[in-house]
Design a protein around this nucleic acid. Sequence first.
DNA 1: CTCATCTACAACCATTTGGTTGCACGTTAC
DNA 2: GTAACGTGCAACCAAATGGTTGTAGATGAG
Lengths: 118, 118
Amino acid sequence: MVVDELSQADVDRIFHALADATRRDIVRRTLTKEASVTELAQAYDMSFAAVQKHVAVLEGAGLVSKRSRGRERIVRGDAAQIARARSLLAQLEELWRSRFGRLDAVLANPDAPAPPPA
Amino acid sequence: MVVDELSQADVDRIFHALADATRRDIVRRTLTKEASVTELAQAYDMSFAAVQKHVAVLEGAGLVSKRSRGRERIVRGDAAQIARARSLLAQLEELWRSRFGRLDAVLANPDAPAPPPA
DNA sequence: CTCATCTACAACCATTTGGTTGCACGTTAC
DNA sequence: GTAACGTGCAACCAAATGGTTGTAGATGAG
């Protein structure tokens, strides 16, 4: 099990970073294929500095990481951090499914019938 | 198959709404048990108006809905919208898993999401 | 060495955000 | 009817956001 200790501020940063279409696209691209900041900047209709700041926001949220390749900085998406965010949402959904107080029972006895899906 | 047509602005709103600890807590509470705006406001160390604005942001993102009960407005979390957000993250992760040989994966699983329309 | 490229960061600016207080309006209680 | 309650909205404010330009350092090319 991954040591999954995200503070509220960490979660804030993750969702804030994802709340921008350009940043989501950068994550999408760099999950598929890593790219230098300059390569990324060429894909968008804004200045290099603006894209560089978007990458910095994503890096601060742990959604991408950077490594050096000569004078370039290669950006790569981090699927594990996305998985953590997805897990948080899954926990919320689970809370909803068990809103009639059956969560404890289900966790204690996984073979018990699940509550009706409303 | 859910009719899942979220614009980029919709996704912006969803993740932005989730990027605040108070709002996430409101979602958590109202997924478990619906509550009036006043009941919610009593749980946080800020003015009623501030909480009312948080609820409005969540409502604009489709993460909660409101119904009238007399003079009260009852807030209820919407698990389906959270599921949509989770699905978006799952699609990103899938993109990562198939970053090599994606064609094969798509051919083997025709129900998988289509490649992004650029 | 010199010049071009890639990156980072500072300064600046308009807009948005997250909080406040105050007020108006509908509903409930007395 | 009148007072209290619950809600929504406007106006205001400080701070954060998302963009810009400019500058400077590090690396690669010739």
